[in-house]
């Protein structure tokens, strides 16, 4: 079943869309979907007061939700979902795919912070850019991403993959500071540049950067130069400088930094 949700008027204030997921809708008929409630600012509203709803395709076991329009002020799209799919034809807002366990989310525009917050499984694909804290646990917690995959075509913000234990994050654009902060496992691949401090306080896991890095933290030490490295779904050609760290936290994480993109890191080769 494929259901289209289109805002009747563009959102001016935050709307919590966490109740509209394939898991919640499964087994409902369309009138029940219409009477679901969402929070608009501090007011509770029926879904059909906010959206025009259309069933595009009755068939199919799987539930496919399509959000049409600008959802940059939405919260929690695909929250805790475990199956089905959600497509956002526009931008996606904060906490897209939080606590996701399975299924698939595609966002055609940009998303804000906390994409895939504390994700457990499933996949997220963002065609635009994303904010900070991708896959990171909410503040105060140390249980980060434990599985699933996130792909962002555009640029992303800071602290992506913080406390990540498993799963993968791929960024085709560039990334802000601290990718892989306090990482414990899993893989982060950045095809563009990184502003710096990659792998800060990481204990384990892999951060691969194909673009420019600028600098490596003093608490990392070079180990070797490798011609290529395994990415998420393909082998990436280097050569790569391989650093180990974060030694200030007795970490054994690996930082793979493209040699051709970072000629100034040549000074580390003397240790090899």
């Amino acid at each position: 079943m494929r259901i289209l949700f289109k805002p009747i008027t563009p959102f001016k204030i935050p709307v919590d869309l966490s109740p509209i997921t394939p898991d919640n809708i499964d087994g409902m008929d369309i009138s029940e979907v219409r009477s679901l409630q969402v929070m608009v600012g501090s007011k509770r509203r029926r879904v059909d007061e906010v959206f025009s709803i259309e069933v595009a395709d009755e068939g199919g076991e799987e539930i496919d939700i399509v959000f049409m329009g600008d959802f940059s002020r939405a919260r929690g799209i695909g929250s805790k979902m475990s199956r089905g799919s959600i497509t956002v034809k526009g931008s996606g807002g904060v906490r897209v795919g939080e606590y996701m366990r399975g299924g698939r989310i595609v966002v055609e525009g940009d998303v804000d912070h906390w994409l895939g917050m504390a994700m457990r499984g499933g996949s997220i694909y963002v065609k635009g850019s994303a904010g900070s804290y991708i896959g990171a646990p909410p503040k105060g917690s140390s249980k980060g991403m434990r599985g699933g995959s996130i792909v962002v075509d555009g640029d992303v913000g800071e602290c992506i993959g913080a406390y990540m234990r498993d799963g993968s994050i791929e960024v085709r654009g560039s990334v802000g500071l601290f990718p892989g902060l306090r990482m414990l496992g899993g893989t982060i691949v950045v095809y563009g540049d990184c502003m710096g401090r990659a792998g800060a306080r990481m204990r384990d896991g892999r951060v691969i950067i194909l673009g420019r890095v600028g600098s490596v933290l003093p608490s990392f030490q070079i180990e070797e130069v490798r011609p290529s490295v395994r990415g998420v779904r393909e082998r990436l050609d280097g050569p790569f400088y391989v650093f180990q760290g974060d030694l200030s936290e007795d970490g054994r994480g690996r930082l793979f930094i493209s040699k051709p993109s970072n000629p100034e890191l040549e000074i580390f080769e003397k240790f090899l």
Binding site: D16, M39, S42, R95, D112, H113, Y133, K139
Partner: peptide, 13 residues
């Protein structure tokens, strides 16, 4: 944020 009737907090949101 009190919009859900109880205190919530997430930096960036």
């Amino acid at each position: 944020d009190f919009s859900q009737g109880y205190p919530r907090y997430l930096p960036g949101e």
